[in-house]
Design a binder for these strands. Structure first.
Lengths: 230, 230
DNA sequence: GGACACATGTAACGGGTTACATGATTTC
DNA sequence: GAAATCATGTAACCCGTTACATGTGTCC
């Protein structure tokens, strides 16, 4: 039995809410232009989710046939739209990221300079690839051919976020690569003095004195709601 | 049976690798200064992970007693260090984020202006809270009292990333709030023209013409390795 | 000496993943 | 007409989660 809707549920609902005959396959394909980058999930999760939502009456699934092969095309129901509306009134989950590369940076000194450089190069390339995609989306809107062209005023906010964030990641990767290239090795020898200078220049205010302020437990931090929703 | 190590395994290994008598509790507490923000996981996952790693011989667990209550203190083994070293040679997972707020921005027009404003305010406050924490860490290093003070040259890279990213998020939130405040309502009426202007100003290059370039399947994108490791 | 927070976990569910399967369409 | 690719899913494992449990110092 389906208990509660998850954020993934709402992501699917939200996408189906845009007028279009959504086959699950197309839903999955187009996700890249909707929520793949802000709510990445495996394809099979989407297939399962639409079935759940249909079973709950939030989506309306229409069986079709291509040859003797079946497929389902979904549209949102009024009940589904209402669920979205109610969701908007609940607290958001905070921004969270998975950035494996940073763990590698942390342990970099037990490996080789080439390894960490390679890791950072991968991250930079990933960022560039995503930026290239962002540029494509921008161009689509400028040409007026975007699928959600009529929602340009909303999409602009999202694309702005996406591009800003990726530019930040790319810039960090580049200055970090440059910094590491300037090192002879990965040992701390003589590097910590300069590091303090770098710390001093970081664009964030410091408290007068460091007080051991306890941090909220992680559950609180990651998801604001405690009622079982993920 | 433990099959493969996950990134979470390596995150725990990496933390235990810094010389310290690590009780699981302290491991969990200190995670905020290590990998909580780049690899957020529930506390119970850490408890399970140390047991796995100990069973595999990558960690050494020493039973202690406080009153009649048992606890385990861990340290890394040479085998564990070797596992970390080997991991460094494998491909990284790309940067990924969970940003629920963006889904809400997308469906904002079906809700109220107050709802989306509230959502964005929450995101901004979260970002500020994290930045405050970043400022604290910076200050610890400047005062020379950080736990990993001798690793300042590495930690500086991480804190730089953290602060840059959060500043980007905060700045986006603020300009987006300002934009939305300037609207009378959430309807598209008369907003799309201005949106195109915003698109034009986005700091990313656009391709000559938009070609329908197929995007790599999501699995590829999120995790580079296909051998079952998460 | 009761309440409350800190310390140290375990249990169990389910969401997310990888792996697989098979029909339709295009390519050459 | 074989091979590759696209389209449309299902199965099953396991990581990550939430919920719970219980001992131990500390406050008043």
């Amino acid at each position: 039995m389906a208990k509660q809707l998850t954020t993934t549920s709402y992501a699917v609902l939200a996408q189906v809410a845009v007028p279009h005959p959504w086959s699950t396959y197309e839903l999955v394909q187009q996700r890249v232009r909707y929520f793949r980058y802000v709510w990445p999930r495996a394809e099979s999760a989407i297939y399962r989710e639409v079935k759940r939502l249909a079973a709950m009456g939030l989506l309306d699934g229409r069986k079709e046939h291509v040859g003797k092969r079946a497929r389902t095309v979904y549209s949102i129901t009024e009940k589904g739209r209402e669920a979205l509306r109610e969701w908007l009134a609940t607290p958001v989950s905070p921004f969270a990221m998975d950035f494996e590369a940073m763990i590698r940076v942390f342990v970099a000194p037990i490996g080789t300079k080439e390894q960490i450089t390679s890791t950072l190069n991968q991250v930079r390339d990933d960022a560039r690839e995503m930026l290239r995609f962002g540029g494509e989306v921008k161009q689509e809107f400028l040409e007026g051919i975007a699928v959600t062209q009529d929602q340009a005023y909303i999409r602009a906010l999202a694309v702005d976020f996406f591009i800003s964030l990726l530019n930040t990641v790319e810039a960090w990767t580049e200055r970090t690569l440059a910094e590491i290239e300037s090192w002879d090795d990965l040992s701390p020898d003589g590097k910590n003095e300069r590091a303090l200078e770098k710390f001093r220049e970081l664009p964030v205010p410091t408290p007068e004195s460091v007080e051991r302020t306890p941090v909220a437990p992680r559950t609180q931090l990651r998801r604001r709601r405690l009622d079982g929703r993920v």
